[in-house]
Design a protein around this nucleic acid. Structure first.
Lengths: 218, 218
DNA sequence: CTATTTTTAGGGTGATAACCCTATTTTTGA
DNA sequence: TCAAAAATAGGGTTATCACCCTAAAAATAG
């Protein structure tokens, strides 16, 4: 892999693990096994590294947002896939979700996009819930679907932080991931067909057991 | 006010506004109109200031946790008071809720207490919801009360961040506060007596209009 | 094979951070 | 009232930060 790409990858991992503000260029270069001079050759400023990561972030978000419930496919499976993609995104870009969200820390591309991404994520989830309802799997009034989607995305997004703060270890089977996914399920499982709920729970176990991206675990 | 107390107060305000990591001792001293040497006379280390703030935090949390639904009183009003106290707490100690929650940044007293505080807050809300149900104001199954309480506290806690990220201005009537409080209401208002819902909404307007603590607004 | 470009290492720099030290002023208590 | 204690100011120290500069090594192109 080219040095530039290695920098972007490892910087993101270090930022996720230690926090953006706690990773100096010296530490990053040391971690990469390259000289600091070399690091500054590839990126003129520290913010430029953040920019490169943010660009990838924007691309990955758009890819995830493009997952829509397909007509012929199994809606429960597809929802499970969406959950997996979302959790993955939260983990891979954890430091962006945490450290940068205030005090003007975001890169411009994120600053511009974040509001739309949140809204579109809510709409995306609403489409899935409406598909659940249409398929007879979920008993939910149409005019309360938007609230369900908003509440679900809030809990999914902040659940990981919440359970980590409660002391859930990130290792050992991803307790925080499992808890977060089960937590969002409590919003609507009592109105869902038991069979569909069971399948979702199995999806959740798969996601929680899938193992974490290495940049978090270490 | 004694210099020491002024330091603790103004440090908290600056941390809330700019983030803990973005407030140096020089900036803090300048803001206080005292010399840096004087600052170090009152607090030997930067962490000592954090400790002092954290101690007050612990005291304030315990005071808020002691608010329980009284037998004779009006439960709707009391719940509104609890919401107000909770929102206040989130605002007054915003930087603790945001900046310190990971990467080992917390003071020991917070580190030790946080898990219990979260659990007790959930239990506290559950008591209120049970009281709502007992009073015939809320139609909710007993064995789903805990889930409601957990989901409500998660949304209350992270709602402010969420709506700020969505672009809600903190000034001009506290859009984020109003949105967050209304958001948590969507979890159960459809199962609540319209009359009680109306009263809660009026409470929410009062809280949102109450004006923000000055350390946030500026 | 050689000239050119790209990549790398590493010493240097100025700013800023937390924190120390000491002299001076202010407050306090008998 | 006056000596001891508390409070304050401000210069000094050391470490670390992002970032610069230059020379050498490596890759590449003709």
């Amino acid at each position: 892999m080219k040095t530039r790409d290695r920098i972007v990858l490892e910087a993101r991992r270090l930022y996720n693990r230690r926090g953006y503000g706690n990773v100096s260029s010296a530490v990053l270069a040391e971690h990469l096994g390259i000289s600091e001079g070399n690091l500054w050759y590839h990126f003129k400023t520290r913010r430029a590294i953040l920019s490169a990561i943010s660009e990838r972030f924007a691309v990955d978000i758009e890819k995830r947002l493009s997952r829509l419930p397909a007509a012929g496919a199994d809606i429960v499976d597809e929802y499970g896939d969406l959950l997996q993609a979302l959790i993955w995104e939260f983990q891979e870009y954890r430091f962006l979700y945490r450290d940068q969200s205030e005090y003007g820390g975001h890169d411009e591309i994120v600053q511009r996009g974040v509001r739309g991404w949140i809204e579109r994520t809510q709409q995306q989830f609403q489409l899935y819930y409406r598909a659940f309802a249409s398929a007879g799997l979920l008993d939910w009034e149409e005019d309360r679907l938007a609230d369900l989607a908003i509440n679900a995305t809030i809990i999914l997004r902040y659940g990981l932080d919440h359970y980590r703060e409660m002391g859930a270890s990130i290792e050992e089977g991803g307790g925080a991931i499992r808890s977060t996914l089960l937590r969002h399920l409590t919003l609507f499982e009592h109105k869902m067909l038991p069979d569909a709920v069971e399948r979702l729970k199995r999806s959740i176990e798969r996601i929680a057991d899938a193992g974490l991206p290495e940049e978090i675990a270490a």
